[in-house]
Every structure is written in structure tokens, then in C-alpha cells.
Design a protein around this nucleic acid. Structure first.
Lengths: 331, 331
DNA sequence: CTGAAAGCGCTAACAA
DNA sequence: TTGTTAGCGCTTTCAG
């Protein structure tokens, strides 16, 4: 593979000049620069990334560490990050932790080893090894969930408020035994959504019962079992707040299995406005989170911090929007 | 940040010994190796990836270049690739082309520059710059669509046959004016699905009319317009073969807008067994592609080729499975 | 404005 | 078994 020396030789200049020309430094004679460019093209020259990164002690790469590539919420974030990063010449590498602290640690290690310029992460409950990053001074932005110590820029959604509003909506629609299917304890979004749910019940004087709450993985299968379990009770819920869209699939399947119709029999609100939410029957009421915007904001914060790591950490909280559809109408 | 020399000094050995110990070479005295490991841990040593890759002339990284991170078909492939790659110590970086030849070219350049060990790609219609990879001898595996010259390992689904079977299923269910909504011309999967559709019509003696076929982006919005357009005709179709799941969303929305019920009024079969297919009313008949398996097979082929690039290119064709549900029942 | 040369951190001959 | 040493390809002083 052609190296910078090959280009230099062909262009009849030194490697230093080639480097300068190819990197668009102004201090190069236009005629020489043209010769260099021509030589590079002729040889099909592609710079050697590792060599450049070794020398520069940093790569123009951002790592995006998320917990589930198959969750549309996270892929939308990824889009936002990518769009911003690419517009300023950074690449993005996507890493998938599956909510597994071991995988998270491994990916953080990879990020450190590859000397990426910065990391955007939705930390697992334990935030295993994120501290490693901050300790080394690698810029970090947390998304979706805060880090325990909150020592880095953070982009969140006010998910507790959103859960409260969604639950209040259920109350206003006349549902009287509202349940909640949320994620594992310790996961901030799961806990916040549960807290918001309780806030709403409290302020509307509905009594809340642990028997109306189920916690499970943020997956369809777990939610299906949880919902089946809820409906098998003597006094089953007449409405549910569901903490994400994968879970919503499980809940809707359980409803169907019990011959319960969303809205009429059981009110349903789920987090995340997935494309199919309007297609199920009746259309599903959802809490729309600004996922793409989370990504763009996080990327901008990260780039700013890469440029200047002395700024104090900020926390940006974005709002969610309740989209009312048929699954919360009793009629 | 600690370097190998720091570790060497602390352990009282040479950098070569540190390197050997850390890489698990057998030729190191166990006692020394233990000292090295202790020193490395104490310093929080993380090897410098760029330096290692520069020296080795290769990174333990695979690039996966796909056309849409938000398409569940491709994220399932990504899972398959990751699972295999990680099991043998490779990392995977995901790149998103949006079916855009310019982005594809850019990502191929990045892959070359970073000297990744190999590339798995679902090439855009023009396959811009993939040739660059093969020319440089970078191992490549094409997934979902073949490359024009077929000079690399390829993992496909027999999508033409699957489309034919799906269409035949519609015929057998008694539909008599079957239409097709497929992707842009030049995209092999789009063309193959259309061809399979025509195969089926031909062998069942149904006449096919260009007025029953629409081509659009593989997205919901385009499919919605296409379907609306089809149903606005004097002789609208009474069934549709839809070439992917995003398009299916658009088609179902169009049906709803025209107050047409899937199955009873218009038979619907779509490619890809998305999690929500069973939740719409009636449940949607789909062609289930073995996406995860595509990913695992592609990764295995790529790893084999990285180990030995002299083998002749192979093409693996996997089968799809028709899952019959309510959207193709007239009753 | 250009070139010579040092060196980023690591691995792999080669020597001992 | 261990150490010495020569680069991998690039950027960036420092001289000229």
C-alpha cells in the first residue's frame, strides 16, 4: 500500500511537504500542492490512520456506547450523533452493551485503547468502568441516564415528569386501577418512570399498590410475562403505563391472549413513539421522547468538550410529549 | 497515560518482556509475567491501539457497512456479526450509508485508512468504492445484495423465490389483482422481489400490469404515497406484496386512510418478520428472512478469509420462510 | 516556504 | 528465556 514517502518521491518533494499539502496547511506553494495531490491520486494513496493517530495521540473518532441496537430509541440517538459528528469530520463507532456491565467495561477499554476523542454513553446500572474514562481525562457525555457522580455533561429527558403526565392522562380518561410495567431496579429511567407514575397516583388520590407494579428487563418477553401475571390477579389493573416500546409489544400480546382490548378494557400508554404505534388497533398512546435531538445535543456537547475540557459539566434536560391515541379511550 | 516503558521500569524488565507477557506468549518466566501483570494493573496500563496496529499493520476490527441502522433487518444482521466477531476478540464498527453512494465511499475510505481487518457490506446500487477494497486485498463479504462482479464472498437470501412464494400464497388465497410495492430500480433486492412477484403471476396465469407496480425508497413515506396512488386507480389491486417492513408501515397507513381492511379487502404480505407484525389487526403475513444468521455466516466467512485470502469466493444463499397470518385471509 | 530528522508506543527479529 | 534494537507511517519542530 502506498505510503507518504511514495507520494513524496513521485511528486519530487519531502514527506513533510506532502503531509502539509494533504492536510491543507496554507504554507505550501500552490504549484507544489497540486503536484502532491496529483501524485497522491495517481497512487491511490490513503493515509495510514494508526500512524497518524499514534503521532497525533488522538483519533477523530467518537465512541457511542448504547445498551440496545435493536431499540429504535437508541438508533434514533445514533442518527443524531452521527449527523453532527460527520458534519465536522468525525467518525462514530457504535458499541452495544446489552445492559451488561462486563460488555460495557470491555467497550470502554476498547475506546481507551483506540484513543478515541470522546465517548457518548448510556451507562448501565453500575456504570462499570466509566470512571476509568473520566480519570484519564477522556471527554464523556452521558445520555438517557445520568452517571452516579454526575461529573460529566449529561443529556436527559424529564422522564419522571413524562411518566407522571402519562399516568395523569390515564386518570383523566377514567381509569381507576392503573398499573405499571417498568425496567429493572437501579436503571435510572426505569426508576424515574415508576416514580412519576407514583407521583401521579398520589396527587390524584388513587391508592397505589405494589401488586400493580412489575419490573422486568426492557424486553418484550419479560413484559409479556409481567402483564400476564398482572391480569391473572383477582383485581387486575384497568390501565398500564409501559416503560418502553419493546415492552409494549409484550404487553399488547398479553392483552390479546387475555382477550382484552386496549382502550376499552385496559388503557395503555407506552414510552417511545415507534413507527407502528399508529397501526395497532386501536392506535397506541405514547410518550414521544426527542431521541434524535438527544443525539445531536450530546454530540455537540462532546465536541465542545473535546475542544475545551475545562468547562464545568452541564446537564441538559429535554421534554417529552404525550401523543394521545385510541389505546387510552374507554369508549 | 502509562506506556509499556513505564510498566517495564516498574516491573524491572525490558519492554519486550512486557509485550510478551501481556500478549500471553508462552516463552516468559511465570514469575516475571506475574510481576509484569501486577505492574500493569498498578499503573492502570491500557495498550496504545494505534501503536499496536501500526506495528502489526492490521487492527482487530471489522467494519460493518449497512444502509439503514433503523431497519430491524440490518440491526439483526449486526447482532449476528457482533456475536461471532466478539467471540474471537474482534471489535465491530457500524457504519450507516443511508443508501447513499457518497457516504458509502467515505466509509470505505475510513475502513481502508484505519486498516481494518475486513469489511462486511450491503452495497448500494453503484457499489461505489467497494472495488477499492478488493483492489487493496482487504477481505470483503457482501450481504443482502451481491456485488456486480461477485469477486468476494457473498451471503444472500433467495429473495426472488421468497417473493414468488409469497405472491403464490396470495393467489392461492383467492386474490386476483395482486400489486407490488418495491424498492428503487438497480437495488438488487428490490429487483429480485419484483421478479419473484412476476414469476408467480406468470405461472399462475394472472396477467401482470405495470399499473399494479410501484417503486419507491425503502421507507414508509414513499410506500404510503405509492399505495395511495395504487388505490386511487380505477381498478385498484386487491392484494399487495410489500418489499420491506418500513414500507409495510406506509402501506398499512394508506389502507387505513382508504378504509380498507387488510385481508378482507386487500391481502398484504410484507418482507421481514418485525416484532409488531403480530400486533396489527389483523396480524400481518410476512416473509421472515434469517437476518441474524446472515450476520453470523458473513462474519465467519470474513474471519476465514482474513486467515486465508486465497480461497475462491463463495456465495451462500439462505432461505426465507413465509409466516401466514390474518392479512392474507379474505374471510 | 521547504527539508531533515526526531519520535509517538509498540512488536518482532536478532543476539546474548 | 530475556534484552537490544530497528522500524511501522505519520506529523512537527527546528534549521535553512
Amino acid at each position: 500500500m502506498a505510503t507518504i514517502s511514495d507520494v513524496a518521491e513521485l511528486a519530487g518533494v519531502s514527506t513533510a511537504t506532502v503531509s502539509r499539502a494533504l492536510n491543507g496547511k496554507s504554507t505550501v506553494d500552490p504549484e507544489l500542492a497540486a503536484r502532491v495531490l496529483a501524485a497522491a491520486r495517481e497512487l491511490g494513496y490513503q493515509p495510514n490512520g494508526p500512524a497518524r493517530n499514534l503521532r497525533r495521540q488522538e483519533a477523530a473518532v467518537l465512541a457511542l456506547v448504547i445498551s440496545d441496537v435493536e431499540n429504535p430509541f437508541f438508533t434514533a440517538i445514533a442518527r443524531g450523533v452521527e449527523d453532527v459528528a460527520h458534519s465536522v469530520g468525525y467518525s462514530v463507532v457504535l458499541c452495544n452493551t446489552d445492559e451488561d456491565a462486563v460488555k460495557e467495561r470491555k467497550y470502554v477499554d476498547v475506546a481507551i485503547q483506540e484513543r478515541v476523542a470522546g465517548v457518548i454513553i448510556s451507562p448501565t446500572a453500575t456504570a462499570a468502568g466509566v470512571e476509568q474514562l473520566t480519570r484519564r481525562g477522556t471527554p464523556v457525555v452521558a445520555v438517557d441516564r445520568p452517571l452516579p457522580d454526575r461529573e460529566c455533561d449529561t443529556v436527559l429527558v424529564d422522564t419522571r415528569l413524562a411518566a407522571r403526565q402519562a399516568t395523569t392522562h390515564l386518570v383523566e380518561q377514567g381509569y381507576g386501577r392503573i398499573g405499571c410495567v417498568t425496567g429493572p431496579s437501579g436503571l435510572r429511567t426505569a426508576d424515574d418512570r415508576l416514580a412519576g407514575y407514583r407521583d401521579a397516583l398520589r396527587s390524584s388520590k388513587q391508592r397505589s399498590s405494589p401488586r400493580l407494579v412489575r419490573r422486568t428487563e426492557f424486553k418484550a418477553a419479560g413484559a409479556q410475562k409481567a402483564a400476564a401475571d398482572l391480569f391473572a390477579q383477582e383485581e387486575p389493573p384497568d390501565a398500564l403505563l409501559v416503560a418502553n416500546s419493546a415492552m409494549a409489544i409484550g404487553v399488547l400480546e398479553a392483552l390479546r391472549a387475555h382477550a382484552l382490548r386496549p382502550g376499552r378494557d385496559v388503557g395503555v400508554v407506552a414510552f417511545d413513539d415507534v413507527p407502528w404505534a399508529g397501526l395497532v388497533d386501536p392506535p397506541m398512546t405514547v410518550v414521544a421522547q426527542p431521541a434524535y435531538e438527544i443525539g445531536t445535543v450530546a454530540a455537540q456537547l462532546l465536541l465542545a468538550r473535546i475542544a475545551d475540557n475545562t468547562r464545568a459539566p452541564t446537564t441538559t434536560t429535554l421534554g417529552a410529549r404525550l401523543i394521545e391515541r385510541g389505546s387510552t379511550v374507554r369508549a
